[in-house]
Amino acid sequence: MSTEDILADPAVDAARPRPTQGYPRLRRLLRHRLFMTGAIILVIVLLATLAADLIAPYSPLKNDFRYRLGAPNAVHLMGTDNFGRDVLSRVLYGGRTSLAIGLMVVLASTFFGTLIGVAGGYFSRLDNPVMRLMDALMAFPGVLLAIALAAVLGPSVLDVVIALTVTYAPRTARIVRAAVLVVRRMEYIDAARVAGAGHLRIIWRHVLPNSLGPLIVQMTFIFAVSILAEAVLSFVGVGPPPPTPSWGNIIADGRSYIPSAPWISLFPGLVIAITVLGVNLMGDGLRDVLDPRLKLEGR
């Protein structure tokens, strides 16, 4: 006896909160404790990096060889690195690079992923060729593909973004395609077609808005993963080039000094961990609110 039968019972169905539209969702999101925790973390990190000019105690690039590899103290809260640069300042400025990379990768992979996913899901003729190409890209382990691409493209922020976009856009494409396949079969799509709606109108008015839930959750995931991937790329030397700080290259710079001055890598690492945690909490909250099926299991 499957749970499906039980859940299909009209009486149970009537009692269940319907997937509501518009503002009720927003209100539920604002009441979602995990989501709000994540959002607050992310806002703090974001504000701190944006206000780096105001709150950073030193220049992130200023060498001060008197204080090389200095342990955290009242003057240098996170200590100094091998050039005597203030780690706190570097982390604050480095956040700009790391978060910018995350944001750009999210935007680019969402744009291309959605384009490809909609093409595959909506136009069945394109489905096979397009999605097989995506499968081929996804056959490589994510970060390895990014490392290889970044190595070929060369070390620059833009190249890192391109490498990560190529890596993560296929994943978005797959999720969007799956959502579109479901939406495409809805009778309201047929109704629009009977009325004479063209493909673009149907995609814009019906398919995209109804596929948005999983896409938004995926965006938070890619943001988090890109920040991590930036660190990995930096670690193997194909990340954003020094001296401009990024969380990834601060960690990478500090790795030779881990036994003697662990704070160089530790603090940016912690900041990455907290940021990723915050983003993931937001993602979970969004999924709870946007995907009613998964939510049911949880309660």
Partner: peptide, 8 residues
């Protein structure tokens, strides 16, 4: 249920 777009 399926013939009306719930977001509109």
């Amino acid at each position: 249920w399926a013939s009306l777009d719930g977001r509109m």
